[in-house]
Design a protein around this nucleic acid. Structure first.
Length: 308
DNA sequence: TTTTGCAAGCTCCCTGCATA
DNA sequence: TATGCAGGGAGCTTGCAAAA
């Protein structure tokens, strides 16, 4: 396995129309990217227009959105040429990890590569090193899918360059990535705001007691509504409800910032154990064609411990 | 402006049960 | 057996945010 040296953030601008267009027809017309050297922090830039196979003039909507003109792409190299120079610029797929903000850029890459008969194994190689950073950020920090601009704002940053310029979009995605990695405390505070409290903390020392109080309240409400016996058709609803509760708190276990106390992480662990036992018990009941599912005392014990 | 994805809420239909 | 009611589930609608 080659040593990881670069993080490549890339973004495509595509053909588009306000009258609707099938994704297959939305060929790439500009590829922008930034290369982050992991060792030195140096950043390289890549930006090229792409001539699409279809020769129709760009729609007004597309021109306005992307600031790309017909002249920009008329004499541009085709997808094969741009992709080839992109790979040269990357300097080694095996030494790189690829990122974009939403997986639509990967889908575009796959779609256009197929159209231009680019080696499928090469695309598979890139895909195996690809991360949809928006999905990671949503799961770990923001809860909802945010635009690059709104994600930057969470860290008090503003967009640098022009939006819908793919190189700047890629560069600003890198800035979110670096904030996420270099400022775990702020990332955890944002996560608490968006997943649990709906507001930012002013004082760090308030965090742990308030998380415990909130968990106690949530778990207590859950236990009040919990029944001893469920018809099997109703267990699905219980599982969903429990999963939502786990999703709300499980990021605390990662604790990159060290913000959360042992007491807090242990309570979240108990919550996860309860969910795991519940899922296991459900599968066993399904396996034996049970009509009802009883919640044994030992399954509910972790929840009672949290609420105590 | 359209498309996409997700979540929440709403509606309709089916099922089961009670009653005549 | 026919009718009416309640509850639940599937599927549809709506709203929101992000993508181009």
């Amino acid at each position: 396995m080659a040593e990881l040296k670069y993080f490549i953030f890339f973004d495509f601008e595509m053909l588009c129309s306000n009258r609707g267009m099938a994704f297959e027809e939305m060929e790439a017309i500009r590829l922008g990217a930034v290369k982050y050297h992991i060792d030195s922090g140096k950043i390289d830039y890549f930006d090229k227009y792409i001539k699409p196979t279809q020769q129709k003039p760009l729609s007004k909507f597309c021109k306005k959105l992307t600031s790309i003109s017909d002249e920009d792409i008329r004499n541009a190299p085709n997808f094969n040429e741009v992709f080839s120079s992109f790979l040269t610029w990357v300097g080694g797929v095996k030494k790189s990890r690829f990122f974009s903000w939403s997986n639509s850029d990967l889908l575009r890459l796959k779609c256009d590569s197929h159209l231009h008969r680019i080696s499928a194994s090469l695309i598979t190689k890139i895909e195996s090193r690809y991360v949809d950073f928006q999905a990671v950020f949503t799961k770990r920090v923001s809860k909802d899918n945010l635009s690059v601009n709104n994600a930057l704002k969470l860290y008090g940053l503003s967009f640098i360059g022009h939006q819908h310029n793919p190189m700047y979009d890629a560069y600003n995605t890198l800035r979110i990535f670096l904030s996420f990695h270099h400022d775990p405390l702020q990332s955890d505070l944002i996560m608490l705001d968006r997943f649990i409290f709906g507001e930012m903390f002013e004082r760090i020392d308030e965090v742990n007691p308030l998380v415990i109080a909130k968990m106690n309240k949530d778990v207590h409400t859950f236990l009040v509504n919990l029944e001893d016996i469920y018809k099997m058709k109703h267990v699905d609803k219980l599982l969903k409800q429990t999963k939502r509760l786990v999703s709300k708190y499980e990021n605390i276990l990662i604790n990159r910032s060290g913000l959360f106390s042992k007491e807090v992480t242990e309570k979240v662990q108990l919550l996860k154990e309860f969910y795991a036992d519940l899922c296991h018990s459900y599968k066993e009941h399904v396996k034996h064609s049970s009509k009802v599912m009883m919640l044994d005392e030992h399954i509910v014990t972790p929840m009672k411990q949290i609420a105590s």
